[in-house]
């Protein structure tokens, strides 16, 4: 049983006009096995929250705390956070030219597990995970995200999640850009990891359709850099019908 606890988190970015506050006091607790959907208008700071938890150097934490099972996440380097059991499926996965997917996966898994995977079982493990996500095995020999379509990049993110077996995962618009079949396949992948690992999930999305596959326990409305309302799955349906107008003007 793991707990990611975010308390009073305030985050700024450096802009040409100086420092600009994006997150204005975020409070959120995610336990193993829970799915928290985060929905909010463009630019409200959802990705900023995700990146800040993962440790992207662009964001400055001005106050608040993030802990994973009591350990101070904000004190950890980016790689230490992954080793501690955090995973961020990015909204815009990065291309890394000249680095093959297979080399990348093996290096990452070796780092996170603390030992190189057994040669005999590793190839099979990757193959199986790829086939479960309907990824052509040829992707293993391609360079990381280079020339991948939007949907292929998202599948590749979930492939990494399956192999790295995190405790808490943040999925930043993993559903954007997926066709109907891919949405189902990727969702099934997420649910598999959730079942096997008792994964806790922060699911950032604009659409309720992914929530049909990955059932949220909680829905949070994110606006102006903070959570402005919380509820159950019914809140998502309400948002889809009414939009965010009442929260943005509030």
């Amino acid at each position: 049983m793991s707990t990611l606890e975010i308390k009073g988190l305030r985050v700024s970015v450096v802009t040409e006009e100086g420092s600009k506050e994006i997150l204005r006091g975020v409070d959120l607790t995610i336990n193993s096995g829970e799915v928290h959907a985060i929905m909010g208008p463009n630019g409200s700071g959802k990705s900023t929250l995700a990146y800040s938890i993962a440790g992207h150097p662009k964001y400055t934490i001005t106050s608040g705390s993030v802990t994973l099972d009591g350990a101070d996440v904000l004190e950890m380097t980016v790689d230490e956070r992954a080793k501690a059991g955090l995973f961020l499926a990015m909204q815009y996965p990065v291309e890394v030219p000249g680095v093959s997917v297979s080399n990348f996966l093996r290096t990452a898994v070796t780092a996170v597990r603390g030992e190189a995977p057994k040669v005999r079982t590793w190839v099979g493990e990757v193959k199986e995970a790829m086939s479960a996500l309907s990824m052509d095995p040829a992707f293993a020999e391609r360079n990381v995200n280079e020339g991948f379509s939007g949907g292929e990049k998202k599948r590749h993110e979930i492939l990494q999640m399956e192999l790295l077996k995190p405790k808490i995962a943040i999925l930043d618009e993993t559903d954007s850009g997926l066709d109907v079949d891919a949405l189902r396949i990727v969702s099934e992948g997420v649910n598999r990891v959730k079942e096997n690992q008792n994964l806790g999930i922060m699911l950032i999305t604009h659409y309720t359709r992914i929530l049909r596959y990955i059932k949220p326990d909680f829905v949070h409305v994110f606006a102006g850099g903070r959570i402005v309302e919380e509820g159950g799955p019914e809140l998502a349906t309400k948002l889809e019908e009414n939009g965010y107008a009442e929260y943005v003007t509030a």
Partner: peptide, 16 residues
């Protein structure tokens, strides 16, 4: 950042 967010230490990420 991408490589490190997958647990790869910075030295090794640079090398990659």
């Amino acid at each position: 950042f991408y490589l490190m967010s997958r647990g790869i230490p910075s030295e090794e990420a640079r090398r990659l």
